[in-house]
């Protein structure tokens, strides 16, 4: 019985996932402490810049922060692991007495919302366009789409984001830069209403556009090549000989099989998008976990940084795990090899 559990595919996957998270937690803990400056220095420096005398700035810092940065690093690390094991991320240094978990619960949903919506749009759109490109390969449609896809997927997302803000926002004034920032308009509360949803989408629109534009190109190209190779499979030829309708062959025989390798990349790209969110969310001042991370980096708010880095890693690990499960459902060959 025990042997069966230990050799179980999902058990092994779970252990691997936990080890990954542990390793990343350790690395981030030490790496962020190697950054120059600590929360106290940064706070005192900002106070000084505002004209507060050194003496007073130091006193303020001492009364505000209850941390002892001179404790041996190893002990801090052990404390951190101990708390982490209990699911306790600690307390923010800068926003005194605010648990990190509360900060995360407040900001993470917005990032997840934007990332999920944009990956959904770009994955579905990329797959449909990729199939069209494969079906009409070498036609003008394919040539134009392939050209656009390779250009658009090679531009970094922050460049597109800035372009949108500077050109469409400031110069052309297609939208009001001051109004669209943040994740909700002032006074709007999260609730189940059309009004709230409309407002949420209005504020999320620009980041979503950027994420979709920068990820759709690679989906299109990968799906195109995958579809072309599936079109050459014997079972597609035999399906035609079986007199099965073209539309049925395209969906159940070609697209259904061509899509399988894309699920692995989908999981990886979730991590990329969440990991890249600090830049995009800062540019659009979108109140997500990415913006919070870049704030935490400037103020050296160690616990918040640690927690957010961990969440980015965890999102990749969890997404990979889910993609794996999904692939098992979609591909019977994988299901068999696991049992």
């Amino acid at each position: 019985m025990l042997k069966k559990i230990l050799s179980n595919y999902f058990f092994i996957r779970l252990v691997k996932a936990l080890v990954t998270i542990f390793v990343v937690a350790t690395f981030t803990f030490f790496l962020i402490r190697l950054m120059p400056g600590n929360p106290l220095d940064i706070f005192i420096a900002t106070q000084l810049a505002q004209g507060v005398p050194l003496q007073e700035a130091q006193e303020r810092a001492a009364s505000l922060f209850h941390i002892d940065l001179s404790r041996p690093m190893m002990l801090q690390y052990l404390d951190y692991l101990k708390n982490l094991a209990r699911g306790d991320f600690g307390v923010s240094i800068i926003s005194t007495n605010t648990p990190v978990s509360k900060i995360i619960l407040r900001f993470l949903p917005w990032t997840l919302f934007v990332v999920t919506v944009s990956l959904f749009i770009s994955f579905i759109g990329g797959i449909l366009l990729g199939v069209v490109m494969a079906l009409y390969r070498n036609s003008w449609i394919d040539q134009i789409l392939s050209f656009l896809a390779s250009i658009i997927s090679s531009i970094p997302n922050y460049v597109i984001a800035m372009l949108i803000v500077v050109y469409f926002g400031v110069k052309l004034k297609w939208f009001n830069i001051a109004e669209i920032r943040g994740s909700l308009s002032p006074g709007v509360k999260p609730e189940f209403s059309l009004y709230f949803l409309k407002d949420a989408f209005y504020h999320a629109m620009l980041p979503i556009i950027v994420y979709v534009l920068t990820t759709i190109g690679s989906w299109m190209l990968v799906m195109k090549s995958s579809t072309i190779s599936t079109l050459g499979e014997d079972y597609v030829e035999v399906a035609k000989a079986r007199g099965i309708k073209e539309s049925r062959i395209m969906t159940s025989y070609v697209a259904r099989n061509a899509i399988l390798p894309l699920f692995v990349s989908l999981a990886i790209s979730i991590g990329f998008v969440v990991g890249g969110s600090p830049l995009i969310e800062s540019i659009f001042v979108y109140q997500g976990i990415g913006l919070k991370l870049s704030d935490a980096i400037t103020t050296r708010d160690y616990p918040v940084m640690q927690a957010i880095f961990l969440i980015i890693t965890a999102s990749v690990v969890v997404a990979n795990f889910l993609a794996d499960l999904l692939l098992g459902v979609l591909d019977p060959r994988i299901r068999t090899s696991r049992n």
């Binding site: 099989n257 019977p332 060959r333």
Partner: peptide, 24 residues
């Protein structure tokens, strides 16, 4: 032609080993 294929004339191309959709 689609109606004719397989109902009147069955053509089994080379490569019967891959003749079936792997996910069906």
């Amino acid at each position: 032609l689609q109606k004719l294929r397989w109902s009147k004339i069955v053509m089994m191309a080379q490569g019967a080993l891959n003749a079936f959709n792997p996910v069906m």
